[in-house]
């Protein structure tokens, strides 16, 4: 008998037994996508990006489905971050399109929207080198993740009057939920600049989550972390994906993590997309082994 489809908040145990609802009850839906699980959400279509004579991305096409953790791997300089920058509107590719499907109306081409507009469409991201607002507290950083969902009126702000005050309280509710999810309640009022590296990465993930993103772009969320921090971060990425159903595009170098958590893996090399597929398929692909994994890397999943 086929197992019933999962709803948001449900997780299927690995032993194949019945699905059970995870104890954490979300008051807020962190997923900003209106699509069905499994529908194509981001369509990268023959994107080509070059800086002067240097080709960063060459005719890359791939599809990210709603609800997936889609890993992008590849050697340094392969164009992973450039591709993410194209998705969030920081780079303008010379050719190609990145279509974001939203469930209602036509897809939007992310290559021609400004970053602040992409954010409104539900594209959230974290950066490889943490880009937090260092002088603000964790709470303020997370509240800034709510910026696109707030209404900003000058007069009300200056007077701390009605709507301005009310919405601060209203949005605090969701922010507190993210704080709980990421297990950082004690850090709430600390300035971000004073936090340890691993915690800053966590706050950056939190800021993106507060946007209730349709797509979450994570650029090496586990770089430079020790095993324990990595484990935590992997757990959060999985939580966000499984409990909230947020589509995640993940750049990561740790093959153990990538193969464990992702549903789909795309391999970039010299700006080209070598292959996209499930972890097991990618792992045994000749071209991938040659370009990135290296021969004789049999004990996969051990991590580095």
């Amino acid at each position: 008998m086929p197992l019933p489809a999962l709803r948001a908040g449900e997780v299927r145990p690995t032993d194949g037994s019945r699905a059970h609802v995870v104890s954490r009850a979300y008051q807020h839906d962190l997923n900003g996508s209106g699509l069905e699980r499994g529908a194509v959400q981001v369509e990268v279509d023959a994107v080509h990006l070059h800086f002067g004579g240097v080709v960063a991305i060459e005719e890359v096409s791939l599809e990210v489905r709603q609800g997936d953790i889609h890993a992008i791997i590849g050697p340094n300089g392969a164009g992973k971050t450039s591709l993410l920058n194209c998705m969030s509107g920081l780079y303008r590719p010379q050719r190609g399109a990145i279509r974001l499907h939203r469930g209602d109306g036509d897809p939007v081409d992310l290559t021609t929207t400004r970053p602040s507009r992409s954010a409104r469409l539900g594209v959230a991201r974290s950066f490889q080198n943490i880009e937090l607002f260092r002088h603000m507290t964790v709470l303020e950083n997370l509240l800034l993740g709510r910026h696109v969902h707030m209404r900003h009126r000058l007069a009300a702000s200056l007077a701390w009057f009605g709507p301005a005050r009310r919405q601060e309280i209203e949005h605090r509710d969701l922010v507190e939920e993210v704080i709980d999810l990421l297990e950082i309640p004690a850090l709430r009022k600390l300035p971000v600049g004073a936090l340890a590296y691993g915690l800053q990465k966590r706050v950056e993930l939190g800021r993106a989550l507060c946007m209730q993103p349709a797509v979450l772009l994570l650029d090496e969320p586990m770089a430079g972390m020790n095993a324990e921090e990595k484990e935590d971060m992997a757990r959060f990425v999985l939580d966000v994906n499984e409990l909230a159903g947020v589509t995640t595009v993940l750049i990561e170098h740790d093959m153990g993590v990538v193969m464990d958590v992702s549903h789909q893996v795309s391999v970039l090399d010299f700006g080209r997309c070598l292959v996209t597929g499930e972890p097991d398929v990618v792992r045994s692909d000749e071209r991938v082994i040659k370009a990135y994994l290296g021969a004789g890397s049999e004990p996969m999943g051990a991590g580095t």
């Binding site: 603000m136 800034l144 946007m211």
Partner: peptide, 10 residues
Amino acid sequence: DQDIAAEVIG
């Protein structure tokens, strides 16, 4: 504090 990040969050 971080103008690019500000733009990316909207």
